[in-house]
């Protein structure tokens, strides 16, 4: 399918091009909704559609007023601040716990491994609404509902499965004899971990951390239930904005968030290339 052979019949030729056309349409479906909000966020009017001025590319049709609103409105600023307070701490917790546990799980003699694995992965499988409901009941019981700590702990729990999965995946390619070599040369386990193991598994740790970060940064269901007005995050503010009074500022926020996603995607892609390159050089 990658190229049309020279002997293709007219029917095959037609099918080849129409298949590509269909795929083009599906790619368009995937990317268009994300791309369309970028120009719309510069709308000078409070509309959610292209105005005549915008279509004729007149400068007066465009403005930065929605961005201006985002950076001056105290509600949005509070939400932005909360998002950047909660997500990094949750990421740090999830990455630390997750990496250590993944290293433990990768050893050959772990008792009850399948059960432990199932429990550790479960936050990723259980639908968010159920996690949110359970945590709401339980956290209000122990007095963590509506607190910053409660939201951070919940987000950390939701992020750990991703760290476990990515770090476990990199540990599969990790040569255990390196640890033994390091120990035989007199390094203690902590030195071995930081000097030998960590540099090799760092791509998995970083991509796990990115997954954990985006999980917390995007998460809205749990924060809606567990948080109070003081823990409003960006997704929360967007959610209430979309449900109640939909304002075009949301489009400006959405555009900024698309750029965050592009940045994360780039970092991940670079990491993937790096680990592929490393895998090509290191034996076995």
């Amino acid at each position: 399918m990658s190229a049309l052979p020279p002997y293709a019949s007219p029917l095959q030729r037609t099918w080849f091009y129409s298949f590509r056309f269909i795929c083009g349409l599906i790619f368009f479906f995937l990317i268009f909704p994300i791309m369309v909000i970028l120009p719309l966020s510069f709308n000078a009017q409070d509309f959610f559609t292209f105005t005549k001025e915008m279509l004729s590319l007149k400068p007066e049709g465009y403005s930065l007023k929605h961005y201006n609103d985002f950076f001056t409105n105290p509600d949005w600023q509070q939400a932005l601040k909360n998002s950047f307070l909660i997500a990094p701490v949750a990421t740090l917790l999830a990455t630390t716990f997750g990496t250590v546990a993944a290293i433990g799980l990768s050893q050959s003699h772990v008792p009850f491994k399948p059960v432990i694995m199932a429990i550790l992965i479960s936050p990723m499988i259980v639908p968010l609404i159920i996690s949110a409901a359970g945590m709401y009941f339980f956290f209000s019981y122990i007095g963590l509902q509506g607190t910053y700590v409660g939201v951070v702990l919940a987000h950390a729990a939701l992020g750990t499965p991703f760290v476990i999965i990515t770090v476990t995946a990199t540990l599969v390619g990790f040569d255990r004899s390196l640890v033994r070599a390091s120990a035989s040369l007199g390094a203690n386990p902590v030195t071995t971990f930081f000097k030998v193991q960590m540099p090799l598994i760092i791509p998995g740790v970083v991509s796990g951390a990115l997954f954990a970060f985006i999980t917390s940064f995007d998460e809205v269901v749990v924060v809606l239930f567990l948080g109070s007005a003081g823990q409003k995050t960006l997704p929360w503010q967007m959610f209430t904005g979309l449900r109640e009074q939909i304002s075009p500022t949301i489009l400006a926020v959405a555009s900024l968030m698309v750029f965050i996603s592009i940045a994360l995607l780039t970092v991940l892609e670079l990491l993937r290339r790096r680990s592929e390159r490393l895998r090509g050089v290191t034996p076995g």
Binding site: V100, A101, G104, L105, V110, S122, G134, F137, T160
Partner: peptide, 24 residues
């Protein structure tokens, strides 16, 4: 040693995630 490495996360998940689900 393997179990001690896994234990912190296991306890963390049991408290923050499994206990709420059982409570529900």
């Amino acid at each position: 040693r393997a179990f001690l490495l896994v234990a912190p996360l296991l306890i963390f998940i049991l408290i923050t995630f499994v206990a709420p689900i059982i409570d529900m």
